[in-house]
Amino acid sequence: MTPLQRRALVVLLLVLAPVAALVVWLATHDALPDPIATHWQLDGDPDGFTSPGGFAAGMIAVSAAMAVLGSVVVTIGSFRAGSGPIAGVLAWTAWVFAGGVGDALLSAHGVADAHDARSGWSHSVVVIVIGLVVALAVWRLTPIPPSSIDAAAVAEPSYRLSPGERAVWVGSASSRPLLRTGMVLVGVGTLGLAVVALVTVLGVVSPGTSTDGSVLISALVVIVVGLAAAWCHSITVRVDATGVTARLGGVPWPRFRVPLERIEAARAELVEPMQWGGWGYRVGGRRGSALVVRKGQGIVLARHGRPDFAITVDDAERAAELVNALVSARLSARAT
């Protein structure tokens, strides 16, 4: 498929959501009770009711807005590598809103009393799964920008591995500021928890009041963010015949891996976090996906059919050289 055909297909998938919802509305609107059920309990009994016209108009409008926004994102392409994931999220939203209104209208169709309309969690699951499938298709179909890396690096690697020779490169990078930030946040959060506990024990406010609850939740959020920052403060990277593998924070799981057969070429460069969407594990930054623990040296991998992938690591030059040597060795082994 040409990039133009891919874009057209993505726009079609996006616009299909509000159009389908509109078709359902046109087909059902003359046989609906007023109000209709628009929210259900888990067991399928409705517990929320709205007038059908306003509800349908609102939901279809949101779905249409998401579809238009998504179409703009994939058409102008100025989000570059981020276009795919952004369009995917917009497609999911468009389809979930369209699915929600479609489900409500179909459940209400021909029902005299809104209380008799049946829906429930199984319908929600179907709507969400359809949304996810479409979102994934949109993400994968959105054309990716050409890589910033010259694939010639593979044709002319700094050195060649002789047939049968094996090689491994291991490196790491870490950021003290990120670790410190994480530890401070965990400390502040823990302090918040202690305050909540103390206040509750002393009976200054009765347990379960709203102030109590919001402080508790904020404290937990701060702790989680702090732990995430601390987790992302260091990275270990390994390059070998299987590809490039990275681990964050010295823990063995999760492993981030780019298989060798998916790598086109590699280059060492100074990684600017904002070009890749920030710190930590990023998907859909302007230039692609990335594992960033700090600003500075990193290895950027050009991948077949996917956006570039950047990994911050010290001594990235040697890592990139080995990746290119391995890719080149793999290609020549396949050629013979």
């Binding site: 094996r166 491994v168 490169w169």
Partner: peptide
Amino acid sequence: MLIRVDPAS
């Protein structure tokens, strides 16, 4: 750290 080994060596 880079390590290359050649079984033929």
